[in-house]
Design a protein around this nucleic acid. Structure first.
Length: 417
RNA sequence: GCGGAAUUGGUGAAGUGGUUAACACGGUAGAUUGUGGCUCUAUUAUGCGUGGGUUCGACUCCCACAUUUCGCCCCA
């Protein structure tokens, strides 16, 4: 037997239903906010992610699926959605004649070569939004609230927006310097990972789980004390707008985000009970320029669809999710089966969910099948009645049975359903 | 990349170094029933993740690998 590759999964049963549900809700929802759907390739030039996501991030240094195609091109399965969308905006010059913001959403699979874990796979689905050419905190508020309201719309209630700001370049330079200065005498007290992070990505040290209770980290400098006046004003404005929009948020200075391109506002949608991040995002004002586009600010976020599905399943509990067939048509001999197929088509064309015996089941088995499908009505065919143009319809709840003219089936079902 | 746990039919699962791998659900066939749902009977894994090894003999012991799962790192 050939098994699925490690870290992948088949979307079946309830998971598949929820995936479709989410997809449908998202599509309808994005129209309200006037976001356009964009679909970019699942693989891109490797360089796009190296320059876009960042050479120092784990995602790029050790988690990409890289391959060389028959034309000897270096390609990479996308590990995230933003870089591809940015590339498309630049390549198609979508920014050409726009005054207002460009607003897009995407939905698709991403690939990261990681050790599988709870809510984490090598192939996983994300939906995300990206807004370009907009620098006003109003857009940040719109994007954050869009994600917030979308989760609510999907049926997820218990979560909070964890919000932080990384400020502008000056802020981060000053803060990083202060942080390193503070940590330097305490380096030996930190975990081995943090000692490495001191060189590669010092901001992450404040988010370390191993050193969570370490006294050194309790008195660590706060980024909020190093914000430039401009950064501070923008953040204050954003918080004001979120309050107006009634968004349940809290400031969490430990949120740093792992992708290099973020600046200013960063946030995550975190469940209250399990403390799981369903998604996150931030502003990335320099990414478009980094990828050879114009100097154009942008902001966006992404949800992990798999995590949303997991959360929805927690909420639904053991609630059943089966197809409730409207009509099951029972037939035994060839003549009956032919009629069954034809009647089924008539019903289906009238949007009646119909199932037939296509597997040579005994009459007894067909009754069982109809029950397991939770059929509301049974159409029971028998040759004698068919010759007279009659069919039997049985209400599978009341068990009442009527005999009607074959030509009236559709009307009868539609009238009684 | 590092660490812990797990892997028996369609499903939930018992099980022992030694003939036919419990039990339950589900499936199939039949009896009974005006056309099922209750009840009864029969049947349903030539195999216990894969590959080696130890042994007279392994599903049961050992090793490797794979996959799953829970953590670390990182992230959605």
């Amino acid at each position: 037997m050939i098994a699925k590759p490690k870290g992948t999964y088949d979307l079946i049963g309830l998971d598949a239903k929820l995936y479709n549900y989410i997809y449908n809700v998202v599509q309808g929802y994005m129209d309200n906010y006037n976001y356009e759907f964009i679909r970019t390739p699942i693989f891109e030039a490797s360089e796009l992610f190296h320059r876009g996501v960042g050479e120092t991030t784990d995602i790029v240094t050790k988690e990409t699926y890289d391959f060389i195609d028959r034309g000897e091109r270096n390609l990479t399965l996308r590990p995230e959605g933003t870089a591809g969308v940015v590339r498309s905006v630049i390549e198609n010059k979508l920014y050409g004649n726009q005054n207002g913001p460009l607003k897009y959403y995407y939905f698709g699979t991403m690939y990261r070569y990681e050790r599988p874990q709870a809510g984490r796979y090598r192939e996983f689905s994300q939906m995300g939004v990206e807004v370009f050419n907009a620098n006003d905190p109003m857009i940040d508020a719109e994007v954050i609230s869009l994600g917030y309201n979308l989760l609510k719309e999907l049926g997820i209630e218990k979560f909070t927006v964890h919000l932080n700001t990384l400020g502008d370049l000056t802020t981060r330079q000053n803060y990083t310097a202060a942080l390193k200065k503070y940590l330097k005498p305490h380096l030996a007290e930190l975990c081995p990972d943090c000692q490495k992070r001191y060189e590669t990505n010092p901001l992450r040290i404040i988010d370390c789980k191993a050193d969570k209770d370490n006294d050194v980290l309790k008195n660590v400098p706060k980024i909020s004390d190093y914000l430039t006046d401009e950064s501070k004003a923008l953040f204050t404005k954003l918080k004001e707008l979120l309050t107006i929009l009634d968004i349940d948020y809290e400031i969490d200075e430990r949120i740093v985000r792992g992708l290099d391109y973020y600046d200013y506002n960063v946030w995550e949608y975190v469940t209250d009970d399990a403390n799981i991040s369903l998604g996150g995002g931030g502003r990335y004002n320099n990414l478009v320029k980094t990828l050879d586009g114009p100097d154009m600010p942008a902001v966006g976020f992404a949800f992990g669809i798999d995590r949303v599905i997991t959360e929805l399943k927690n909420i639904l509990g053991s609630q059943e999710f089966t197809n409730n067939v409207d009509v099951y048509i029972m037939s035994v001999n060839d003549e009956e089966k032919m009629q069954a197929l034809r009647i089924a088509q008539d019903l289906r064309l009238n949007n009646v969910m119909t199932e037939i015996n296509s597997n040579n089941l005994s009459l007894k088995s067909q009754f069982k099948m109809a029950d397991s499908l939770k059929a509301k009505f049974l159409v029971i065919l028998n040759s004698d009645d068919l010759q007279k143009g009659l069919v039997n319809i049985k209400d599978n709840v009341t068990k009442e049975e009527v005999k009607i003219d074959e030509g009236e089936i559709v009307d009868w079902i539609l009238g009684n359903i």
